[in-house]
Design a protein around this nucleic acid. Structure first.
Length: 267
DNA sequence: TACCAGGTGTGGC
DNA sequence: GCCACACATGGT
């Protein structure tokens, strides 16, 4: 499958929305649920080798990022123009909801190398063999283990949250039909689970359901908020004001700025 | 050693 | 409703 135009695998995988990928000679291997693909670049053209139907949706190839970038570019905010240039080619993915749910429960007060390590351990221990590599575990597989097991993998205080969330999905089909809900209801439902607050709910809405009208507020976005408004505020206020400020593509603007700020060390 | 990491839950006010 | 603090773990 070929994609023409702005697409950058490195920026996409390094923008903090995905934790299972590796770089090899000439491209990236990206894993999602029980599928994988290889992404390579050749000039202005991107080639994706894998399940075309699945990864066309995953990479959201029909979204027009040039138009979105143009709209966001009109907003006056510190570093936004540089962030859009710096992040050009970055895309928001439509990841598997269950994998995203568990991954971002693990992300809470955690750093990216350790998040990757824990997710990898989950796959190695509970994922089925997908042909020489391990898929992300099914809800049933994760629900079959107790919190003690997740503690033994280094999940710490997140251990019971993982076990509970997996059981909610496996036993009472928690994720079914969530996609039909409007964004704010989707986020509210996600927060019914232990370990999911406003920030994680927004990450799931943005990275699995492609809801752009959210704004995950973490330590970096707090800095971004302070640079725009010259003050600090509660997480709830920052989220509301940033969504109002950036509008329908708040989540994408946030992602460009997040990637820029994290890469440049701060304001 | 103290602080931080793509925060959340809880108890006190 | 807001605020301060604890929470597991590993890296710097």
């Amino acid at each position: 499958m070929k994609i023409c135009g702005a697409f950058d695998a490195k920026k996409t995988v390094e923008s903090g929305q995905i934790f299972r990928y590796e770089q090899n000679t000439g491209g990236y291997i990206i894993y999602s649920a029980d599928k994988k693909c290889i992404v390579t670049h050749n000039g202005n053209e991107t080639n994706i080798t894998g399940d075309d139907l699945y990864f066309a949706r995953y990479f959201d190839i029909n979204s027009d990022y040039e138009t979105i970038e143009k709209k966001i570019s009109k907003i006056k905010a510190p570093h936004l123009k540089e962030a859009i240039v710096f992040g050009r080619g970055l895309r928001l993915l439509r990841q598997d909801p269950f994998e995203t749910l568990i991954s971002f429960i693990i992300s809470v007060n955690n750093n990216i190398p350790r998040i990757k390590k824990i997710i990898n351990a989950l796959c190695e221990n509970l994922g089925k063999d997908a042909g020489g590599w391990r898929a992300f575990p099914s809800p049933e597989a994760l629900a079959s283990r107790s919190e003690d097991f997740y503690r033994s993998l280094g999940c710490g205080f997140r251990a019971p949250r993982i076990a509970e969330a997996a059981r909610a999905v496996a036993e009472r089909h928690f994720l079914d039909s969530l996609n039909d809900l409007p964004t704010e209801e989707l986020c509210a439902r996600l927060q019914e689970l232990n370990g999911i607050g406003p920030k994680v709910a927004d990450c799931i809405a943005l990275f699995a359901y492609a809801r752009y009208d959210v704004c995950p507020v973490d330590t970096w976005v707090k800095k971004i908020y302070e640079d725009i408004f010259g003050k600090t505020a509660s997480q709830k206020i920052m989220r509301a004001e940033l969504i109002c400020f950036f509008g329908e593509y708040a989540g994408i603007a946030q992602q460009y700025l997040f990637y820029y700020y994290r890469s440049h060390g701060a304001s």
